[in-house]
């Protein structure tokens, strides 16, 4: 707050009103509803509900489908995060070191940021088309016949490729801006001390980029959890069958298709706890970040 703040009593309330109204109506109230209905079993025809305690949660733990999707979500996020961070870091380091065409490369490598996730799914369906998809043909040469939407692993593979394609640009932008904020004096000192570019990267650049990396780690996990929804929905087209889906997608499936409000709410609460954990983790990292720089 500014020292010389205005003392008007009603104006700030009025200014805050739109934001707070929307937040209460569309954030806190629904979140509370989710927590509440996770302890109830709702009649499928809308006639009342019964309190069932933690039954909705234990049902989740007992459900092989849910555990399978939880497991998928875990390794899907891990693979997407690792690949997109790795590729983006490599590209950012190279884009930072070239003198000629740096701007062009930057543009060419970041524009995919603006592509909507469902379009990434649409592209995945084409490049993995069973009959003539370019990537299907490519992998067929190695004896791997890809059949997405039929084979569990193949579908997961297509989802990973699409997600990495979509996520590399964000990481690239952050890594590049991180690299460019390394003071020239530090670079020059490193140049003098260490002739090998590879060893310079691991001993000087990489530790300096670590805070950006930690921060991106959280961003990427959140991305793989939530922002892949549209991509998955486009690939599976409402018809998941026994194909891989993330936990977020399952909330939607159970809540809207299955009409299992209690179960879907319990899943929402699980995800809220997950986001809370990630956020707390991120804040602790941010605190440490200040020490670094």
């Amino acid at each position: 707050m500014k020292r010389a703040g205005f003392a008007n009593p009603w104006l700030p309330v009025l200014l805050l009103l739109p934001q707070l109204t929307i937040i209460c109506l569309f954030f806190y109230w629904p979140a509370w509803q989710a927590v509440r209905s996770s302890f109830f079993l709702e009649d499928p025809f809308g006639f009342g509900e019964t309190f069932v305690g933690l039954q909705n949660y234990t049902r989740l733990l007992d459900s092989t489908q849910y555990m399978k999707n939880a497991w998928f979500t875990l390794w899907f996020s891990a693979v997407v995060t690792a690949l997109s961070l790795g590729i983006a870091l490599l590209l950012a380091v190279k884009a930072d070191s070239v003198l000629r065409g740096a701007r062009t490369y930057r543009t060419l490598l970041m524009w995919v940021y603006a592509v909507a996730p469902p379009v990434a799914g649409f592209i995945a369906l084409i490049v993995f088309n069973q009959r003539w998809g370019p990537l299907t043909e490519f992998f067929a040469q190695f004896g791997w016949e890809i059949r997405i939407r039929l084979e569990y692993f193949d579908t997961a593979f297509a989802m990973i490729v699409a997600s990495v394609w979509k996520q590399v640009p964000v990481n690239f932008i952050f890594f590049l801006s991180g690299l460019q904020s390394i003071p020239p004096a530090v670079r020059e000192a490193a140049m003098i001390d260490n002739r090998s570019a590879v060893s310079r990267f691991w001993t000087v650049t990489f530790p300096l980029l670590a805070p950006t990396g930690f921060f991106l780690l959280i961003i990427n996990i959140t991305y793989s959890l939530f922002d892949t929804f549209g991509m998955i929905d486009t690939i599976l087209r409402n018809n998941p069958g026994d194909q891989p889906v993330t936990l977020v997608y399952q909330v939607y499936l159970d809540g809207f298709r299955g009409q299992d409000i209690g179960g879907s709410s319990a899943q929402s609460v699980v995800l809220m706890v997950l986001v809370l954990a990630l956020t707390v983790f991120q804040f602790r990292l941010v605190e440490r970040r200040i020490h670094y720089t």
């Binding site: 979140a31 959140t222 977020v248 939607y252 809370l276």
Partner: peptide
């Protein structure tokens, strides 16, 4: 802490 996806049904 409350992305749309986790509160989609009640919203």
């Amino acid at each position: 802490l409350l992305p749309l996806e986790v509160r989609i049904v009640p919203s």
